[in-house]
């Protein structure tokens, strides 16, 4: 039974981690354009290192 002392906090902790990740992704606006995200995978973008791209490339 003593194993529960570790397992229950561990399972709750993992659950909380998942919850926190979801809340973060929600706040970061990842659900604002679901159709666009599905479509954009078809776009071939130039593969340039991030440092070489022009500034201001992120608009959320």
């Amino acid at each position: 039974m003593s194993v529960l002392i570790y397992l229950i906090p561990a399972s709750l902790g993992l659950g909380l981690l998942g919850l926190a990740t979801f809340l973060w992704s929600l706040k970061a606006g990842q659900y604002e354009d679901m159709d666009g995200a599905a479509a954009r995978i078809l776009l071939d973008e130039e593969d340039v290192p991030a440092s070489a791209k022009s500034d201001g490339a992120s608009l959320r």
Binding site: E32, D33, M34, D35, G36, A39, R40, L42, L43, S54, D55, G56, A57, S58, L59, R60
Partner: peptide, 27 residues
């Protein structure tokens, strides 16, 4: 569609003064 996204983003980024353009397909 995805073609619209590309046309619009590339077209707008080519306009002088435009820094970035991002399409939201859902809205």
């Amino acid at each position: 569609c995805v073609g619209c996204i590309r046309t619009i983003e590339e077209g707008l980024k080519a306009v002088p003064g435009v820094l970035d353009a991002r399409v939201n397909l859902t809205a």
